[in-house]
Design a protein around this nucleic acid. Structure first.
Length: 134
DNA sequence: GCCAACGTTGGC
DNA sequence: GCCAACGTTGGC
């Protein structure tokens, strides 16, 4: 069981879209570091759904339901996608500002590699964020 | 809208 | 293989 954080700009794919579709193909990743993390995802892994750019915050959780496969948006075999299913929406959003203020979360990659769209999260970090959101 | 951080590209 | 130039991401 692994934990991850997935970023999405609401203009591209919003929580409302996720609610409508329930499951979504996480495609379009064109960064090797992020791609490598996608390849490590297994069925049942839990992900934090992070809204970037517009009011940055962790806003929901989702579950990996299909491990990596060829990204359907390209023929280039370098790129892969996974399928994730919406799990739960946080009762209250966990804004980036709060994460920055939380001592236990200072080591999150989110704070160090702000441009990485797919990143691992430790179980401890997942627990803390989950608690802050519920 | 600005700009810092980072990744990628391409000339040498 | 180095590094400058450029493009993109994402916080503010």
């Amino acid at each position: 069981m692994n934990y991850w954080l997935l970023k999405s700009e609401p203009d591209a794919f919003s929580l409302a879209d996720f609610v409508t579709e329930k499951t979504t193909v996480w495609n379009g990743v064109r960064n090797y570091t992020a791609r490598n993390y996608l390849k490590k995802m297994e069925i049942g892994d839990l992900c934090l759904f992070y809204r970037s750019v517009v009011k940055p915050a962790v806003i929901a959780t989702c579950t990996v339901v299909k491990p990596f496969y060829q990204d359907p948006t390209t023929d280039n075999p370098a790129w892969v996608a996974v399928t994730v299913e919406l799990n739960a929406i946080f009762e209250q959003e966990v804004p980036l500002t709060l994460i920055k203020q939380t001592p236990e979360l200072q080591k999150m990659l989110l704070l160090k590699m702000s441009r990485l769209s797919v990143q691992p999260v430790t179980e401890a970090e997942w627990d803390i964020i989950h608690r802050l959101g519920n």
